[in-house]
Amino acid sequence: MKRTTARLADGREIIYFDRRDDAAHRLDDPRDLPPVSTTSQLRHDPVLDEWVTMAGHRQTRTFMPPADLCPLCPSTPGRPTEVPSEQYDVVAFENRFPSLSTRATTDVTGTDLVPVRPGSGRCEVLCFSSDHTASFATLAPEQARLVVEAWADRSTELSALPGVEQVFCFENRGEEIGVTLSHPHGQIYAYPFVTPRTTRMLESARRHRERTGRNLFADILAEERAGERVVARTEHWTAFVPAAARWPIEVHLYPHRQVAAITDLDDTERDEFVDLYLDVLKRFDALYDAPIPYIAAWHQAPVRTDRGLAYLHLQLYSVKRAADKLKYLAGSESGMGAFITDMLPEDVAARLRKVFL
Rank of each mutant, 00 (worst) to 15 (best):
E176D: 12
S37W: 03
Y294N: 04
Y311P: 07
P66T: 11
D45H: 06
I15V: 15
E142R: 13
S159V: 09
R229M: 09
R145W: 01
P162S: 03
K2A: 13
F217R: 05
T5N: 06
R79A: 12
T238L: 04
G186V: 07
S85I: 05
S40K: 01
V148P: 10
D21W: 00
A243S: 13
R154E: 08
E272S: 03
L113H: 09
T76M: 08
R117K: 14
D22N: 14
T212V: 02
M1K: 09
S318I: 03
P345F: 05
A140D: 15
V280D: 04
P34I: 02
L33G: 02
P242H: 02
S101W: 08
L146R: 06
L265E: 03
L100C: 01
V251N: 10
S155E: 15
A239E: 09
T53E: 05
L253D: 02
L113I: 13
P248V: 10
I220V: 15
R154P: 12
T53V: 15
E13Q: 07
A205I: 07
A310S: 15
F63E: 09
V251R: 06
R257E: 14
I14N: 05
M201D: 14
F284Y: 13
P77E: 14
W298C: 12
L352A: 13
G331S: 13
D22M: 03
E82A: 12
F356H: 14
L161M: 14
R270N: 08
V108Y: 11
C169L: 12
A55T: 02
S155G: 13
Q143T: 12
W237F: 12
W298R: 00
V147G: 03
A330R: 13
D29S: 09
L33I: 01
P35G: 10
R307V: 00
F170L: 08
H25F: 12
L27W: 03
R283C: 10
T156E: 14
K320H: 02
Q87E: 14
E13G: 01
A150F: 05
R229F: 07
D28T: 15
G337H: 09
I292H: 00
E250Y: 07
L158E: 04
C70E: 03
P248F: 02
H44S: 03
R321T: 11
T105N: 05
V251I: 11
N172T: 10
T138E: 12
A160H: 11
D279M: 05
S334L: 14
P30T: 08
I14S: 01
F273Y: 13
R283G: 08
L42R: 09
D22I: 07
G308I: 10
I292P: 00
R270E: 07
A140E: 15
V36K: 08
P80R: 09
R103C: 04
G213Y: 09
F240H: 09
R7Y: 05
A6K: 05
A260S: 13
Y189Q: 06
I220R: 14
P30A: 10
S334H: 12
C70Q: 05
M54Q: 13
F284D: 01
D29L: 11
D22F: 10
R304F: 11
E235M: 04
Y191Q: 06
V125F: 02
V319G: 09
F128T: 04
R96I: 02
E210C: 00
A144H: 01
V274P: 06
L42D: 03
V348D: 02
D275I: 13
H132D: 00
S129L: 01
A92Y: 02
S85T: 13
F97K: 00
D10P: 00
